[in-house]
């Protein structure tokens, strides 16, 4: 009886040690990296990236998504892109540069407090469409804008 009690106590202690490690954030980096959608970032086309990300590549064209980007980007290494949408309940915003070696540039998961707005700077290998895909109320919407690149930013 007393042996069982000993084993029981030891088991509890071991269990709580793991709990403390998780609580202290020691295990966070791995947990965080596991969420990175590797398949989506390895996809070579817009459709494949969307399928990997959202399970569907059907996105309806929407006039409620505005992409602010230069018509001509002199330096492909730094292309400012702003995506602004008036769609409600935005769940995610993805930015895709169609002809980049890795087309999916960024994908944002929006919490309830986040507005449908993202602004960033991206690299573009050559002239292509920049596609913004917004997931709103479980549906995908897209808009595209062509950006001409005079000096690519993805090569050496």
């Amino acid at each position: 009886m007393s042996m069982q009690r000993r084993t029981f106590l030891r088991g509890t202690l071991a269990g709580s040690a793991v709990g403390v490690a998780v609580g202290a954030g020691l295990l966070t980096p791995q947990a965080v990296l596991a969420a990175w959608p590797k398949n989506a970032f390895e996809a070579k086309s817009v459709g494949d990236a969307l399928s990997a990300l959202h399970g569907s590549s059907d996105a309806a064209d929407s006039g409620d998504i505005k992409i602010k980007a230069p018509d001509i980007a002199e330096n492909g290494a730094v292309v400012p892109i702003t995506v602004d949408t008036s769609l409600g309940s935005v769940e995610s915003i993805s930015v895709i540069a169609e002809k980049n070696p890795v087309p999916l540039v960024a994908s944002y998961e929006m919490g309830p407090s986040a507005e449908g707005f993202v602004s960033m700077r991206i690299k573009m290998g050559k002239t292509s469409d920049v596609v913004a895909v917004v997931k709103s109320n479980g549906k995908l919407f897209r808009a595209a804008k062509e950006v001409k690149v005079t000096i690519g930013g993805c090569g050496g």
Partner: peptide, 13 residues
């Protein structure tokens, strides 16, 4: 409280 999480590739400047 999390407001937004972004996943990036090397395509960000």
């Amino acid at each position: 409280e999390d407001a937004l999480t972004g996943h990036w590739s090397g395509g960000v400047s």
